[in-house]
């Protein structure tokens, strides 16, 4: 059986409506205009209204398009499962790196070198041939950046503030 909507055709207007509701909710908490006609709530209300109208129009337009098209819609190309897994793993490495930096368990250079190596390994197509280069580049980039931040730009490093 032919589907009436693609998933994205439902999600996009729904997100727009949700955002419009959030804007309206936030705008309702703002004080009224005092020195000029529009006030701080004017823009959020305006954008909320516009998003609401656009999402309704989007749904109507999608419905009309589907009704008009006689051909069976071609399914959107699906990402390979291992590509999705790799993306999620990559994101997990990034989040873990940020959490470790925030907690201050290890120093900036150590955390960064491990992060660069792990993310590189996740993204690499030929890991065996590249691993040594990966580790060397990761260490050089982390060390160089750490020294630049502490010695030249005099920035307090995140977490425990230590280099290692």
């Amino acid at each position: 059986m032919r589907r009436l909507f693609e998933v994205r055709d439902i999600v996009v207007p729904l997100v727009a409506v949700g955002l419009a509701a959030l804007l309206a909710l936030g705008a309702a908490q703002l004080p009224p205009a005092r020195f000029e006609p529009m006030g701080p709530a004017g823009l959020p209300y305006g954008v909320a209204l516009a998003l609401l109208m656009l999402s309704v129009l989007d749904v109507v337009s999608t419905l009309l398009k589907r009704r008009r098209s006689r051909a069976v819609p071609v399914a959107a190309p699906q990402s390979a499962p291992h590509a999705v897994g790799r993306t999620l793993l990559g994101l997990a490495v990034i989040v873990a790196y940020l959490l470790i930096l925030q907690s201050g368990w290890v120093g900036f250079v150590t955390a960064s070198a491990v992060f660069l190596t792990l993310l590189g390994a996740v993204l690499s197509n030929r890991l065996r041939g590249e691993i040594f280069v990966l580790v060397a580049v990761a260490f050089a980039v982390s060390m160089g950046t750490g020294l630049l931040l502490t010695r030249v730009l005099v920035v307090v490093l995140p977490g425990n503030g230590a280099l290692f």
Partner: peptide, 18 residues
Amino acid sequence: PKGLILPTVVFFCFVGIY
């Protein structure tokens, strides 16, 4: 290889923001 480029790009984004 993108295994070398992309992590460095992400790292410099973090450093730039921080």
